[in-house]
Amino acid sequence: MRVNFTVNGRPQEADDVWEGESLLYVLRERLGLPGSKNACEQGECGSCTVRLDGEPVCSCLVAAGQVEGREVVTVEGLADYAKQRAEAGCATGACGTSLQNAQGWQAKGTDSHTGEGAELSPIQQAFIDAGAVQCGFCTPGLLVAADEMLERNPNPSDADIREALSGNLCRCTGYEKIMDAVRLAAARQGEAV
């Protein structure tokens, strides 16, 4: 079957989709967006978390056919998504300086192949800065989930962070640096507003 939907703001069409395929499979294997990770395929790890019409969901549990006509944001689109949100916030007068300007993490000339200096969302930058990335397999899902939480709850308590991220397993870090990263992103966000 054919599925048409929007990914990271761009219309996409996937052809010859087997009816049992998940959104995750279509993103990874048909649309060249392997950022969302497949770690359990049973909704237990959160590595495949994407936003479907704004809601964080496990893309492994969404049948490809169910996304017809809907909007998906993946980790690949997270920086843009956050940027647009920040700009929209400014447009409405909610924040004085854009997050990017305030944090000083905007592109300063990309450093060769590492992507150093690439424009990142605050949560992405905070994950790097706080040492929240080790093997990185859980990272995309955590970023999508954490970014959405900070959107809803800009000043989360530790318990709030833990609850919001309780659907995302990490096997490397023991979560401490992930907590640090989310606190850092929240703090920077707070300074920026």
Partner: peptide
């Protein structure tokens, strides 16, 4: 299939191959 929590796991793990999936 609505939320997919049960059905998709069964499909992903090859426990079920329904003739029709109804969204």
């Amino acid at each position: 299939i609505a939320g997919g929590t049960d059905v998709m796991v069964e499909i992903n793990f090859d426990h079920r191959r329904p003739e029709y999936l109804m969204d």
